[in-house]
Amino acid sequence: MSEFDTSFDFDGRRVPFRPGQTLGAALVAAGTTAWRTTRLEGRPRGLFCGIGVCFDCLLTVDGHANQRACLVVARDGMTALTQEGTGHDDT
């Protein structure tokens, strides 16, 4: 059981977070290092620069693709999804 009572949903799994944390920080704290696959080779990616520069940590949040996990502040009840390719149906 987590020490926090706030959580978001990641691919159907409950991820607890400390209020003020980003989605990326909460995912790493929960032992998840990758939440995107690349457009061409389908390789896993997660945080790299951690400050919004590199765009490696993209995921889909509440239906909005291409959100940087390192910048989006987690909110109770958010839904985050692994992003494949461009995050849109045209891949």
Binding site: A29, A34, G50
Partner: peptide, 23 residues
């Protein structure tokens, strides 16, 4: 360097400072 878990040192520091998380 493209493997998940490899980050910039600044990224590691940001995780610690803002998220209280060791990568």
């Amino acid at each position: 360097w493209d493997l998940p878990g490899v980050m910039t040192v600044g990224g590691l520091q940001a995780l610690l400072k803002a998220g209280d998380v060791a990568a």
